[in-house]
């Protein structure tokens, strides 16, 4: 099985030093790290790797992005590849994913492509979707857990409010990983030193067989932004059969019924029976058969 992991270098939020007086960011202090979601994706890919499997790390970026690939090599990736168009200073998600898709085709398509879901830098989550489009593969986002069972990937997806959904996808596929708890392994010294010394291969546009025209996407324009409509508030409507006085009382209490207590009196047996009956009536106890 061949696995590819797409990595990106993002600013470390802990090192973003905002000058409290001017509000400017002190760029000299910002450090760049492997995106935490990408690191989780890499770690999961490394855990899945069995005998004879390979994990290849890819990134799109200038030479300054090499450390992210060295980190992947140090952690145990079998190979690394950097893609870049020297004429650019930054890439849009569409360009990034086209470069990745082309490189993956040229190098021999893998069985699975891992991405981090929503990077710290932009967090648009577009790369896996676009990559799936260019490769014409299925895409699964927000993956918290996965297992491989005979050419099928069994996964748990993270949904809103802590919900999960399970599903399966056949290989090949693009998987966007959002495993919060997964940390990239700590590299051993020999691997780290080796990674620091390895020359990282680079592919530019001619190497990939692309022309600059292929990458000239029309600039996207935002025409309007509509925030999601807030859910309508439910307004309490008083019972019209009541007297005005009682209706005012209901409106003032916003429909909340006043608390009612019942004090039971009698012998302990009678009281116990009454309590059991009460709990059964409310569904707290099952009715005796």
């Amino acid at each position: 099985m061949r696995l590819a992991v797409c990595l990106s270098l993002v600013p470390d939020p802990a090192t973003i030093d905002v000058d409290p007086l001017t509000g400017e960011i002190d760029a000299d202090r910002t450090l760049y790290i492997m995106d935490p979601a990408d690191a989780a994706a890499l770690e999961l890919a490394l855990r899945l790797r069995g005998e004879g499997d390979t994990v290849i790390a890819l990134t799109v970026g200038p030479a300054a992005a090499e450390p992210v690939l060295r980190e992947a090599l140090a952690a145990g990736a079998d190979g690394a590849l950097r893609l870049w168009d020297e004429s650019r200073s930054a890439t849009k998600p569409a360009v990034t994913s086209l470069l990745l898709a082309t490189a993956l085709r040229n190098e021999g398509l893998p069985d699975l492509v891992f991405c981090g879901w929503r990077s710290l830098a932009r967090g648009s989550g577009k790369i896996p979707a676009l990559l799936g489009e260019y490769l014409d593969w299925p895409v699964v986002t927000d993956i918290a857990r996965l297992e491989i069972q005979a050419a099928r990937v069994h996964f748990h997806r993270r949904l809103a409010r802590g919900d999960r959904s399970e599903g399966e996808v056949t290989m090949p596929a693009v998987l966007a990983i959002a495993a919060d708890g997964v940390r990239l392994r700590y590299a051993s010294l020999p691997q780290l030193m080796q990674a620091c010394r390895t020359a990282i291969p680079m592919r530019d546009l001619p190497d990939l067989g692309l022309s600059p025209l292929d990458l000239s996407f029309p600039a996207s324009t935002v025409h309007a932004v509509t925030p999601p409509r807030p859910r309508p508030r439910t307004i309490f409507i008083p019972d019209s059969s009541l007297s005005p006085h009682e209706r005012i009382g209901q409106i003032l209490s916003a429909g909340a019924a006043p608390k009612s207590n019942t004090v039971l009196e009698g012998s302990p047996d009678e009281v116990a029976d009454a309590i059991i009956a009460f709990l059964q009536a409310r569904g707290f106890l099952e009715q005796p058969a």
Binding site: Y186, A187, S188, L189, P190, L192
Partner: peptide, 9 residues
């Protein structure tokens, strides 16, 4: 000795 696996230099 460094604090990594196989960390002897």
């Amino acid at each position: 000795k460094v604090r990594r696996d196989d960390g002897e230099i």
